[in-house]
């Protein structure tokens, strides 16, 4: 199986953008907490080639209220995507701000972005806080998916309490036509995240999880021991998405690990390509 979409990348190390916007370096180091060297975009594209990945979703985070910072603005994401047709831009908004729905509408309808990224732990809000409901209503009306950070957060200052899967249940139940993706398998709460996905067909999981050992051994633990692989293969085959969390881990490494788990070729095709295409295509 070759070809596919990486549904979860953070372009914080792209050198061309850091050279244009020096504040992005500060955002990468101080807000996103990534210490690796800045790299030309061609390195990311070469890694996608090695991984057999055609396109990657690139994510911003609007943490204006909580961190007084953005990790890419929506406009910067648009500019980044103009550098390669292999990048799919998402928007981010600050749910604390009353203007968030209007900002989202502009990002989708005027800027041409394809989905919404929210990071409750970094943005400091509980997903089921009614404060955020206008944003969800807007996303549902626009027909775009929301990719939520879920589970453990690397960044110092980000609290785990904002990422528990059960705090997403009201969102899934109250917005049944809104596709939501819980990132990182919501690790360590994989069982809870799977329960949510089993109950709510609009809940999806991305596999961009690596918190110890190596991608192969970690995913084997999370996706064959914490929850049997057969559950993902048989019950959630249309709700699992490939994501790497690049640059926290290499795209090539996560792709190899997912392919080593024992999924059928048909299921890998769903995980790597078809499920992502469906979520991204709902709008059109």
């Amino acid at each position: 199986m070759k070809g596919g979409i990486d549904f979860h990348t953070h372009p914080v190390l792209v050198r061309e953008m850091v050279e244009r916007y020096p504040d992005l370096a500060k955002a990468a180091r101080d807000t996103f907490h990534c210490g690796n060297n800045f790299q030309p975009l061609e390195v990311m594209l070469a890694e996608m080639d090695i991984a057999g990945i055609d396109k990657a979703v690139v994510l911003p985070i609007d943490a204006t209220t909580s961190r007084n910072a953005t990790v890419y603005t929506n406009e910067q994401i648009v500019e980044l995507c103009s550098l390669s047709d292999r990048l799919i831009g998402f928007a981010s908004v600050d749910p604390h701000q009353n203007s968030a729905p209007a900002t989202l509408e502009t990002a989708i309808n005027m800027l041409g972005l394809h989905g919404l990224k929210l990071a409750p732990a970094m943005q400091e809000f509980f997903p089921d806080d009614r404060m955020a409901y206008p944003v969800y209503e807007c996303a549902q009306a626009l027909g775009i998916p929301i990719l939520f950070h879920a589970g453990l957060s690397w960044e110092p200052g980000s609290r785990l309490k904002y990422g528990h899967p059960l705090r997403f249940e009201d969102v899934a139940a109250d917005f049944p036509k809104l596709n939501i993706v819980l990132a990182h398998l919501a690790w360590p709460w994989v069982v809870d995240a799977v329960a949510l996905a089993l109950k709510y067909p609009n809940v999806h999981l991305d596999v961009s999880a690596l918190y110890f050992d190596n991608p192969r051994d970690f995913l084997r633990y999370a996706m064959t021991q914490q929850v049997p692989l057969t559950v993902f293969e048989r019950s959630l085959r249309r709700q699992v998405l490939f994501g790497s969390d690049n640059p926290r881990i290499e795209i090539k490494s996560m792709a190899r690990a997912v392919r080593s788990l024992g999924f059928s070729d048909e299921c890998l095709e769903l995980i790597f390509r078809i499920n992502a295409e469906r979520l991204l295509g709902e709008r059109s």
């Binding site: 990534c34 210490g35 690397w154 690596l210 918190y211 110890f212 991608p215 881990i249 290499e250 490494s253």
Partner: peptide, 16 residues
């Protein structure tokens, strides 16, 4: 295994 395969807080990622 490798001891280096752990969270490296100064890099914000796992040492793989």
């Amino acid at each position: 295994g490798y001891y280096h395969n752990r969270l490296l807080d100064f890099d914000g990622r796992l040492g793989y």
